[in-house]
Design a protein around this nucleic acid. Structure first.
Lengths: 189, 189
DNA sequence: GTCTATAAGAAGATAGAC
DNA sequence: GTCTATCTTCTTATAGAC
């Protein structure tokens, strides 16, 4: 990796964290620059505009999601275990979900209010998870794979949102238990 | 109502709409002033700061919610009908929910990222609905009233969020159907 | 109560020195 | 590649005329 690529990676990772924690609109170029100890002029050398930087952050997140889903596919032999692993992720990420919300849901919501074009780009993250969930559900119930995956995502997002709003992991735990029970009922039919 | 109160009401209603449609951070005082054809200097006479204006908007919304819940209480004789009316609201508001998301959920999410104090204030809106839902559920299942009301709100928020993210009312319709079925199962137990 | 004028600061983006 | 300096625009907020 060249020196320039290294610098870019550092910027993207810092921007990723700050955008998640503070939101996109309330994170300035200076914030990101300060976080890694460079000047904002430097940042604007690597990324012409703030939108370019956001796009890089979204691509970074996409790669991480892809890695994760491929890993789960290898590690868990059955669709049921994979679906439960997805739910388990929510429980595992409890602390950050309560503090900052879902990285996909909160970013998409924010961009939708004022930057419809960027919102469309951040949609690919959801597509990524949904396609994977659908694949798993189809091996259980081929006809309803799409609607089952959507239902799961809907409930996961609802749980993450309420836990964030009330700053309380209870919302996550309670709903995830019920989601797991629901998965069991789908498997046995 | 005095001339001053009338002016304030116009401002709050315009701010309410714009904050819902564009988000709080991306709505400026000038935006609100332009929307009702006055200058921003005028707005700052009625509301010292942008935060003051937001607080007035939240109070305005709270009153509307209270009116609505009282109305439902009078119009629908049973808790089951009232719960279904709550779900029906989501279907009725489909167009604006898809375009702008849930007014409570989106505002709270945005404020949570950067203004924790204001987020706490906007929480009262959720408390309002949740207390009402809990009251209805308690007449059906006294022991689990709280958790049932939370579950309903979680799923409603998930549906609204996904419909907004994908700009597609399908997410709302599908989930609301399932929520209604779930209410039926709770009633019959 | 409503307006204009203006301050004071923050933000995104550009140009040029090193 | 990184920095400083600067430009421009936008935003909140204040002061004072009408």
């Amino acid at each position: 990796m060249s020196k320039g690529e290294q610098a870019q990676k550092r910027i993207v990772e810092a921007a990723n964290a700050l955008i998640y924690q503070q939101g996109y609109n309330t994170t300035s170029i200076s914030d990101v620059a300060n976080a890694i100890g460079v000047t904002k002029g430097n940042l604007q050398y690597h990324f012409r505009s703030k939108e370019d930087l956001l796009e890089a952050v979204i691509n970074f997140r996409l790669k991480e999601i892809d890695k994760q889903l491929q890993h789960w596919e290898l590690e868990y032999p059955t669709p049921t275990l994979r679906l439960k692993r997805f739910v388990q992720m929510i429980v595992n990420e409890e602390v950050s979900l309560v503090r900052f919300g879902c990285p996909m849901g909160s970013l998409n919501m924010e961009l939708g209010k004022s930057q419809k074009l960027l919102q469309a780009k951040s949609l690919v993250m959801f597509n990524c998870y949904l396609a994977w969930l659908e694949k798993q559900f189809r091996t259980i119930d081929n006809r309803n794979g799409k609607s089952l995956s959507r239902h799961l995502m809907t409930r996961a997002q609802g749980a993450a949102l309420m836990a964030y709003i009330y700053q309380d992991p209870k919302w996550l735990k309670d709903e995830c238990k019920q989601i797991n029970s629901w998965i069991d009922t789908q498997v046995s039919t």
